[in-house]
């Protein structure tokens, strides 16, 4: 049987979650591999959420927010953008292929785009296969504070700050 990856999606309430709902109302079929978690803004997506998802068994993480300039919260998504750059380095440091994390902009009217994104990412992850973690990361799965500390340390080591 073909490997079916599980993707954890963090969707902002105003644009991307609404776009995903629109895919539903328009009955735009797509792969059933995404498991969505609603956040108010993509800016809420703490790097630890992403690591946590991998530690808990996700094969990929998709973060979706409003298009730059269209954020319901004025500029939350710009902050996400900068944070996600660092996140790329972070997951690499944990031995996770960067292609497993994606940040995409999906507006409230882009049901079609959302559906295609899910399909695309599913296919890519199928080729990459199941995400294997180093035991150190897996061990952090149930320890939020530990995870936070690890993220902070990792970011400090990369010589940058997570903020802004």
């Amino acid at each position: 049987m073909e490997f079916e990856p599980i993707i954890v999606g963090f969707l902002c309430n105003w644009c991307s979650y609404t776009g995903a709902d629109l895919a539903g109302t328009a009955r735009i079929k797509h792969r059933p591999n995404l498991r969505t978690i609603r956040v108010m803004c993509s800016g809420r997506v703490d790097p630890t959420f992403v690591l946590k998802a991998f530690a808990a068994g996700a094969d990929g993480v998709l973060v979706c927010g409003c298009h730059p300039g269209d954020c319901h919260y004025i500029e939350g998504n710009y902050k996400t953008m900068r944070r996600m750059e660092l996140l790329g380095q972070l997951v690499r440091a944990y031995g996770i292929d960067e292609r497993r994390v994606r940040l995409e902009w999906v507006s409230a009217s882009e049901g079609e785009r959302f559906a295609r994104l899910v399909d695309e990412m599913t296919l890519e992850l199928r080729q990459l296969g199941p995400c294997k973690l180093r035991p150190t990361v897996a061990a952090l799965a149930n320890d939020f504070d530990g995870l936070s500390r690890a993220v902070t340390a990792q970011v400090a080591a990369s010589g940058e700050v997570t903020h802004g």
């Binding site: 956040v39 803004c41 703490d46 959420f49 946590k52 319901h72 919260y73």
Partner: peptide
């Protein structure tokens, strides 16, 4: 307006997003 951007960025973990807490999302 509860976007949670400050919550995700606080280095001390001092900020709680009511109804979107870290624990709830974990």
């Amino acid at each position: 307006k509860a976007c949670g951007t400050c919550v995700a960025a606080c280095p001390s973990g001092a900020i709680t997003a009511r109804h979107f807490t870290d624990k709830q999302i974990f």
